[in-house]
Structure formats: C-alpha cells, structure tokens
Design a protein around this nucleic acid. Sequence first.
DNA 1: ATCAAAACCAAGCAAGCGCTAGTGTAACTG
DNA 2: CAGTTACACTAGCGCTTGCTTGGTTTTGAT
Lengths: 188, 188
Amino acid sequence: MNDSPRRKELTRLAAQLFVQEGFDRTTVRMLAQEMGIKSGSLFHHFRDKQEILAVVIEEGTQNALALARQALERSDPEPLARLHALARAHLETLLTDRNAHVVALYEWRRLDVEAREHLTHLRDAYEQLWNEVIDDAITAGLVKGERALVARFVLGALNWTVRWYDPDGARQPEQLADELVTMITQRS
Amino acid sequence: MNDSPRRKELTRLAAQLFVQEGFDRTTVRMLAQEMGIKSGSLFHHFRDKQEILAVVIEEGTQNALALARQALERSDPEPLARLHALARAHLETLLTDRNAHVVALYEWRRLDVEAREHLTHLRDAYEQLWNEVIDDAITAGLVKGERALVARFVLGALNWTVRWYDPDGARQPEQLADELVTMITQRS
DNA sequence: ATCAAAACCAAGCAAGCGCTAGTGTAACTG
DNA sequence: CAGTTACACTAGCGCTTGCTTGGTTTTGAT
C-alpha cells in the first residue's frame, strides 16, 4: 500500500498501543477505537494486523539508520568522536522515537517470515555502521576486545536503556551515551 | 499449590513453549498437548495460565540468585575477582537456564500485578548483588563511571546475549563474561 | 456539476480462546 | 476394607478474535 499521512498517524498510534499492551493483546478493535474509526475500516489502510506491526518497526529502523548516517557524516573523523556520535545518535532515536523501538525489540518474533527477512537486512545495515566505528576504535587502542563481541555488548547496553530510562529524569540521552563511552574506553 | 516434581517438569515444558511462541500465543491446549494431557487437566496443576508464567519466571530468578550468591561466596575477595565471578555466574544461568530467563525478559509485562510485585523484589535482591560488586570495582579504580549507570549498562550487555549467543558455537559463557570484564576494566 | 477514488460503517462469520463442571480411576491411608 | 487424595478425562459454555462482505459517505480533481 501507500504511505499517506493518515497512515503515518495510524502507525504512530499503533506503536503506542503495542507498547502499552503488547502486540498480541492489542485487538483490531482497540486499534480502531484509538484511531477513531471502526474495526472494519482498519483493513482499508492495512492488509492485516501483521502489516501494522511491520510498518511500525520499519519506520523506526529507517529513522534510526538515517540519523546514524547523518551523525557520522557530520562527525569529526577521529575514532573517539565517531564513537561518541554514533552512541548519541543511537540513544536519541531510541528514546525519542521510543515506541517504535520498544516494539522492534519486544515484538520482533511476531513478524511473519517475509517481513522479518526484509527488516533483518535493514537492521544488518545499521549494525554494520557500528562494526566499522568499533573496529576503528579498537585499532586506535581506545577499546579492548574483539570487534564482534564489543559491538554486541555495546548495543546490548544501549538498547537496555529503554527498560529503565526516565525521560523526565535529569539526565539527557547524550550524557548517557558519553557515560557509556567513558566506561568502555581506556585512559589515554 | 505445591512444588511436586511433576509440576517442575510441566514448568520446564511451559517455559520452552513460551519462548517458542510467546506467552499470549501459547494456548492452554498447546501446553496440555506438550505435557501429554488434556487441556482441562492442566488446571489441576495450576490455578490459571497466568500462574504458569509466574512460576516459570520465579524459578529462573531464584536459580540465578542462588547461583550468584554461591559464586560470590566462593570467590576471591578482590574486587576484580568478584566482578569476574558474578559476570560468569550471570551468563551461566542465563545461557543454561535459558528458557526461563528469556521468558522473564520478554514476558514480564504479562504478569498480573501481584506476581509482578513479588518477582520485582526477587529481581531487586539480585541487582543489589551487582550494585555492591560494581561499587567496589569503581572504588578500586578498575571501572570508570557512576555505579547506577555502570550496573545498568553491564546488565544490559549481559542480558542481550540471549539474542545472539549460539550455544553450539565455540565460545563458552565464561569466555564471554571475561571479555566483557576486559572491555570495561582499565589497564592497570 | 461530475465522478472516481478514498475512507468509512454495520453486521457478522468461523475459529479459537481460557476455563469450568462433572465423572472415572488408580494409588495411598487409616 | 472404606475413605481420601491425586490426576486425568469428556464435553462444552460464554466470549473474543482477526477479518470479510456489501454498501454508503466524503473528498478532491476536473
């Protein structure tokens, strides 16, 4: 189908409900009510319930990928600066576009096979950015460890923030990113 | 209810199904079939479906807590040794008792209020162990950062392993734990 | 003013859901 | 041996689910 503005808005609402209730417990009737239409009308915008999930996750991932690339382009080419930039970009999308990413993290397994394959490619592209940046950081002696493991540990630490981060708290996403980089980099 | 050996076995099977299908998509009929009984008989062992989830998570958490305490008791009292010991214990339970922990991580929100409160206390007790160990590591100058943030980053990195770790791969859980500790500790 | 496309609605189907009621039976317990 | 308990069964109730159908209204370009 298309990507009309109406559909964008519906997707945003769906993401919110999926976070609140979980994908399986969110009924098409709940979705429709939140959108101010009847449950039957929902299938004019989306082929089926699964597609809504796929669209929510796709949009979040595309967004993250775009922001990460932008951040790297604008960054100082020094390995440490790039590491900071990518970590900040990651946390910023994660915590502002939070709903979509929580859904991506928690409901990934509910995607059907085709959607999962498509989105896996997107996610791989995103992780490739991390691999490069971390490779450089290790080569420069900033970080100790194997690339593959470091990347996974770092992404784990960052993604885990959606579980405890309080947006109303005093701390900004950037500060979190800097703290993480501090933790894993060696004193020069 | 009790904690008969039969119930233990049923719990183990339930955990496996919950991981495969997710809690909501796992029907009582599926559970019963996997257990070799009819769906009605299931409610002789568990009050309702929710209770099965609670029991699965409780058992996993109790196990992790016991193992962590044991590991700390046996460990050399040096901060670095304790950090290693706790990380190893964490990954060992996480990856051997994997099903229960995946359920705990993914289906926590499906718990009803009472169960969630009870299990939150258990989890807090577990995290308290981490807080102490990390506090000592920071004081000893092994790790840079704030205690609260370091603990959350480390737990995130460790828990994330359930998403990518391949038990048939060459790497042992202990090695992973050591790699993580290497990454976050400062060269002496 | 016209008319196609887009958006919506009322009604409901077929399937599946968690759970209950009532019964049978074999194994323990006094 | 009578009584109790543990465990399983059959049958199905009441309800919700995702989705379809067939038709109506709204919108916007010409």
